[in-house]
Design a protein around this nucleic acid. Structure first.
Length: 284
DNA sequence: AGCTACTCCTGGTAGC
DNA sequence: TGCTACCAGGAGTAGC
């Protein structure tokens, strides 16, 4: 599933293809992908607009637009589970899953391909409004061990759902939350306000380290879905310590890894490395 | 405030 | 072989 490392990879790779290009036409094959805007309104909003910047906020990709030098909103893309962006030539087998296509002034097209239709390709006059509810950028300056320790203390929640809350930290998803908790030896059900300064520092390092290492490998691909805009799979799946490894031995201690459900999400962990909090007998 | 359940979608797969 | 039932999963929303 595209999380921060995958989204960052996509943004980096489509940036040089899009910046400076003007949108001369649009085709919408699945209206709900637009997130509420009608096709004509969308078409009017983007026609004639030029892309000035491609950037990432949490799991969103933003493409800033302008007309005659005046900013005029942005395209705000969320890949959700199966969304992809390609400039030109989506693989032939995926052509039927194209939901939106934009015609560019150099004759190429920007394709938004999304098998499960959960992704969004929106136009926003004021993208900042969409981003206001997002939490801290985990690779930004504001995300420090001190900030995390204070945040964990203040929010009294189970660690796993808290890490997935985009209003707390923007960009973590199911995979990297599980990997970070394992790296920090913290149980996903542990109440956040029971985590002291030392463990908070470990979790901070685990989050930053996991995300940075995954970006270096262009994210994770373990099924047919996530690919870079060039069609390449990422390779961080080979570094997974827990995600998708239930039933296999923990690489750190040898214990068979477990899979439980936390907040309707599959959650992978080592019950030896990640000790259950007091009072949690067994949800295994 | 925080938790759970439900919804959106489809391809893949387990089970028969 | 072919069928059905069920599952995964971000995020928004509703209800407790």
């Amino acid at each position: 599933m595209p999380e921060l490392p995958e989204v960052e990879t996509v943004a980096r790779l489509i940036r040089p293809q899009l910046v400076g290009r003007t949108i001369v036409g649009s085709e919408v094959r699945w209206t709900r992908t637009l997130g509420g805007l009608s096709r004509p309104r969308f078409a009017r909003a983007v026609a004639g607009a030029t892309a000035t910047r491609v950037w990432r906020r949490g799991k969103f990709i933003a493409i800033d637009l302008e007309r005659e030098g005046t900013p005029c909103g942005a395209l705000v893309v969320h890949l959700r589970m199966t969304g992809r962006l390609h400039v030109e030539l989506p693989e032939a087998g995926l052509a039927r899953y194209v939901r939106v296509a934009l015609d560019l002034d150099d004759g190429r097209r920007l394709f938004f391909v999304d098998v499960r239709k959960f992704g969004r390709f929106r136009y926003a006059a004021e993208p900042e409004v969409l981003f206001r509810k997002l939490g801290v950028e985990p690779l930004g300056d504001e995300f420090t061990p001190r900030w995390l320790a204070a945040g964990l203390r203040r929010r009294r929640r189970m660690l796993k759902p808290l890490l997935l809350d985009q209003g707390f930290i923007a960009g973590l998803g199911n995979i990297y939350a599980d990997e970070a908790l394992h790296a920090a030896r913290l149980h996903p059900l542990r109440p956040s306000d029971s985590v002291g300064g030392t463990k908070a520092r470990e979790l901070h390092a685990a989050i930053v380290g996991t995300l940075a290492a995954a970006i270096e490998r262009e994210g994770s691909s373990f099924d047919a879905f996530y690919r870079t805009p060039e069609g390449r799979p990422g390779s961080y799946q080979h570094q997974f310590q827990v995600y998708g490894r239930d039933g296999k031995p923990c690489r750190r201690c040898g214990r068979t890894l477990a899979k439980i459900v936390v907040g309707q999400r599959g959650t992978h962990l080592c019950t030896r490395c990640q000790r259950a909090p007091r009072g949690i007998l067994s949800r295994l």
